[in-house]
Design a protein around this nucleic acid. Structure first.
Lengths: 199, 199
DNA sequence: CCTACCGATCGGTAGG
DNA sequence: CCTACCGATCGGTAGG
């Protein structure tokens, strides 16, 4: 509508990445099925047929968004886990990393798409994603195991991991950056809720 | 496909309720936007135009599903909260009631639609739902307050409530009735994870 | 509740 | 990457 021509920062326009980013925003806001190719094209100032020069199908755009979302989170939390320290320090760093990717400016639309639109992926793309997700969740299982060994948490079972990830992933539904609560605060509150008092 | 004519148990066919139930299943499985009126009609053995004899628009079907989902959960958990007992007893009963509605045979498709398709509701229907949701969440806030007062939980802030509801609502994503875990077990594990040991 | 239908829109493509 | 377009499908309706 309001002529939103991009600043076009010289060099490598990388229109493919533009499409993926626009798609992530639209998929997150309206859902995959309700987003049209024309929506995406308009968001990057293209004609309606042009996105197909970069992607074979609409489904391929969804796959690109979902995979990028998963990879980004796994990379950030993996790095946090690899830094070492007490089980509690590791866990707190992982919480913060996960929430920063989920709620941060750049990542939130990728994460929301990943978490909500997975059912529109074909079996092959879904399987690919599940492999990565299992690897990712194993990081958390290990972190819980260390916490339990240190006597800092009441339960380190797979169900506990699912509850933890549920509490984290659900933040996408309610967290608003302008709501006065920082991501760091939120991460700390979850730590407080789950771990034994620090004394 | 496979001629699925209903047994038609004599008396009051109540086709409207049939449509709502079929819609809840389809909305939960494929999403609102990807579900067609023809899908719904076929599921209740009607012709494609006939559902509009019962509902003015597809959107009205979504509203009916979402409202019924919200009301059912609120009623079940409200009853659990009203039964009295120690804060811990009340909380455990509420956990079980919420999970039973969310994961039980009848409720799960209503709940999944409620939790995932809210963005397709128009502002008016959404506002109606938010009013009920706020009332519902206040039940949980009060339960947390009582737990905190009794020294059974580390945090009773609004963020703690959101984490709790996130852990609960996320179960829709992973719980499978045939997975060997009962709903009661799951409820108990969340209680263990969040509350101080019973000693 | 069915028959028959409509206008709009959609994902995708041919050819440049 | 645009122009011009296609076949399919969609939500919804008129009339019975």
């Amino acid at each position: 509508m309001a002529g939103s021509r991009k600043p076009a920062r010289a060099e490598e326009p990388n229109r493919r990445a533009d499409i993926v980013r626009a798609a992530s925003r639209l998929f997150a806001a309206k859902g995959y099925a309700a987003t049209t190719i024309r929506d995406i094209a308009k968001a990057v100032d293209m004609q309606s047929g042009s996105p197909f020069y970069h992607f074979k199908t609409k489904h391929d755009m969804l796959r690109a968004v979902a995979l990028e979302g998963m990879e980004t989170i796994a990379r950030a939390v993996g790095a946090a886990a690899a830094q070492g320290g007490t089980p509690r320090e590791v866990f707190d760093r992982m919480l913060l990393a996960h929430l920063e990717q989920l709620l941060g400016e750049d990542g939130r639309c990728f994460a929301a798409t990943l978490l909500h639109e997975g059912r529109h992926l074909d079996p092959e793309a879904l399987a690919e994603l599940v492999v990565q997700r299992n690897r990712y969740e194993a990081l958390w299982q290990e972190a819980l195991k260390q916490l339990k060994r240190a006597g800092e948490i009441a339960d380190d079972s797979p169900v506990a991991r699912l509850f933890l990830l549920g509490a984290l992933n659900w933040t996408v539904q309610w967290y608003r950056p302008d709501g006065g609560r920082s991501v760091k605060q939120i991460a700390r509150q979850l730590s407080t809720l789950l771990l034994k008092p620090k004394l």
